[in-house]
């Protein structure tokens, strides 16, 4: 064990006096400047072999810790389970969430393209609207321009759609088993409603172009298609044990 020593305290005092001297009186700084090397010297001497260390005697027997005794009553298996309880016991694999997201995303895209066809604006219209999130030049585009095919917009639209679909699907997969009872109700109806509400609120910020032109009925319909499809895929997947999946 290291021996008790006051040199660290003296060093701290020296540093403080050095600082205090700047504010009050140079004499204090001088005192500090004397103390610092003095304390450092004393400290370093403590570190030399053969100094500053000692072997501590054991404390008297009555002050030693009592030996830890095994618990008198063996714990029942049920109790043993409870105190290490990990909930939920079984979850859907994360991959099921992603798969659900992809399936839902395809369904959503079909609805969106159907909207383009039905409204007579062509299938590229919705793709361009989605891509407008990343493409400022669409902000001033006319409807006719937006109906044209645009390779860059197609790439952006696909990337955004794929990422958001898979990501939201992953969230579904993780959250669904933690929600009580009717997972399809949560996944198919409540979640799309919340999601649509959030998108409705933020659309003006995220994608003003789409905000101006979106047809909310079709939009909501596509959200429900996504939610129900994703929920179904997740529900149909085989549940895995938490411990097996390495989640705790």
């Amino acid at each position: 064990m290291p021996l008790a020593t006051a040199w660290p305290m003296v060093l701290a005092l020296g540093i403080t006096l050095l600082a205090a001297g700047c504010l009050t009186n140079w004499a204090m700084s001088i005192a500090g400047a004397v103390l610092v090397p003095l304390a450092l010297g004393g400290w370093i001497r403590e570190l030399l072999p053969g100094r500053g260390e000692f072997e501590h005697a054991r404390v008297p027997a009555h002050e030693r810790p009592r030996a830890v005794v095994p618990a008198a009553v063996a714990i029942a298996p049920a109790a043993g389970f409870v105190h290490r309880m990990r909930l939920p016991e079984k979850v859907h694999p994360y991959s099921a969430g992603v798969r659900g997201g992809i399936v839902g995303g395809i369904g959503m895209a079909v609805v969106a393209l159907a909207y383009g066809v039905v409204s007579g604006r062509g299938i590229w219209y919705t793709v361009n609207l989605l891509a407008a999130m990343l493409m400022p030049r669409f902000a001033t585009a006319t409807d006719a321009e937006l109906a044209q095919f645009d390779a860059l917009a197609l790439v952006f639209g696909l990337v955004i759609h794929a990422l958001v679909s898979a990501g939201a699907g992953l969230c579904y997969g993780v959250l669904l088993p933690t929600l009580p009872r009717w997972p399809v109700l949560w996944g198919g109806i409540v979640a799309p409603l919340l999601w649509t509400g959030a998108v409705y609120g933020f659309m003006g910020v995220l994608n003003p172009v789409m905000n101006r032109r979106v047809d909310w009925q079709w939009f909501i319909a596509s959200q429900f298609v996504y939610g129900i499809l994703a929920g179904l895929v997740v529900m149909r997947s085989e549940k895995v044990s938490v411990r097996g999946a390495g989640i705790s």
Partner: peptide, 10 residues
């Protein structure tokens, strides 16, 4: 743990 350190108990 005077005599029964953790290793000994197992």
């Amino acid at each position: 743990m005077s005599q029964a350190g953790l290793p000994q108990s197992i």
